[in-house]
Design a protein around this nucleic acid. Structure first.
Ligand SMILES: [Zn+2]
Ligand SMILES: [Zn+2]
Length: 268
DNA sequence: TGTATCGGACCGTCAATGCC
DNA sequence: GCATTGACGGTCCGATACAC
């Protein structure tokens, strides 16, 4: 199975170099990179009858070892949501990434400019999405509302985030996420050890943070927020149900199910 | 019924390749 | 130098096995 956690302590991961240091000062999570959808295919179900377009699944850059082993969804924060949930936050560390092989010869590339498009170009999210977005916005009442009236971002369906904005389409422009005031959940202040690093002795306390990715009409949605300022990225659940009564961690929820429920809750 | 495991589809990155 | 291709290494969905 390819998912076995890489045991070799390869520190020289070239690409992300996500060293295990916990980014002590994190005010705004680099959502732009790992949390913002790179290419999301809006899925206006019902209005686009033909190609079963689907939103792309967003992945974290580097799952923690626990999630990796379990083949489960991780998030960019450390400890990740799943580890917190299971009360193993202290074991939540980034897995090591192998360095990409170099010097691999490739065959000749197929013609680049010969014919850019056939009549029916292969589906390409970046080209199609504008169309679908437009359709979703302007036209289709039956579609999954791209602009959700209930306070969640449109297309906010689990990890399938809405498509990236098209220039000139301000209504669906997703700017940089920015943090709003952290909510002192349960009035518990973040624990900090000597290094200023947060410790999580009680997995069930992490405050949430409202993010307001939508400067305008959209209501903010919630993101789990860690005492150290890290946030659980909207990745999977681009937020939580605003009134999410999170079940106490360690109760051993089936994370899959729970994740789903969050998403479901979020999507309605 | 709840939880763990894991096969494999899907995704994101980035070196190789091609064009200017 | 920049754009594009496409393979690699990764994430995590969802089916299924297992435990209680
Ligand atoms: Zn994780
Ligand atoms: Zn973790």
């Amino acid at each position: 199975m390819p998912n076995s956690p890489s045991p070799e302590p390869d520190e020289t991961t070239s690409n992300e170099t996500q060293t295990v240091d916990l980014q002590p000062s994190m005010t705004v999570h680099p959502l732009t990179y790992s949390s913002m959808p790179m290419h999301m295919y809006p899925f206006p179900s019902g209005i686009v009858p033909t190609p079963p377009t689907r939103n792309k699944r967003r992945q974290v850059k580097n799952a923690c070892t626990n999630c990796q082993k379990a083949c489960k969804k991780c998030d960019d924060a450390r400890p990740c949501l799943r580890c917190v949930k299971y009360g193993i936050a202290e074991e939540c560390v980034d897995s090591h990434r192998k360095e990409r092989k170099k010097g691999i010869k490739r065959g000749p590339y197929k013609k680049r400019d010969g014919k850019p498009f056939s009549l029916d170009p292969p589906y390409d999210g970046s080209t199609h999405q504008s169309i679908q977005m437009t359709t979703a916005i302007s036209g289709a009442p039956s579609a999954i509302p791209f602009i959700s009236p209930v306070g969640f971002p449109p297309g906010f369906l689990g990890q399938y985030a809405p498509a990236p904005p098209k220039p000139g389409d301000p209504a669906i422009y997703y700017p940089q996420f920015y943090l709003a005031t952290p909510i002192p959940a349960h009035g518990l202040p973040p624990h900090q050890n000597g290094d200023g690093e947060p410790t999580y002795h009680h997995p069930h306390f992490y405050p949430t943070t409202f993010l307001t990715p939508y400067p305008q009409p959209y209501a903010p949605y919630m993101m789990p927020h860690r005492p150290d300022g890290q946030v659980t990225l909207p990745s999977a659940h681009l937020g939580f149900p605003p009134t999410s009564t999170r079940l106490p961690p360690g109760t051993g929820q089936q994370d899959q199910r729970e994740d789903r429920s969050e998403e479901v809750a979020a999507s309605q």
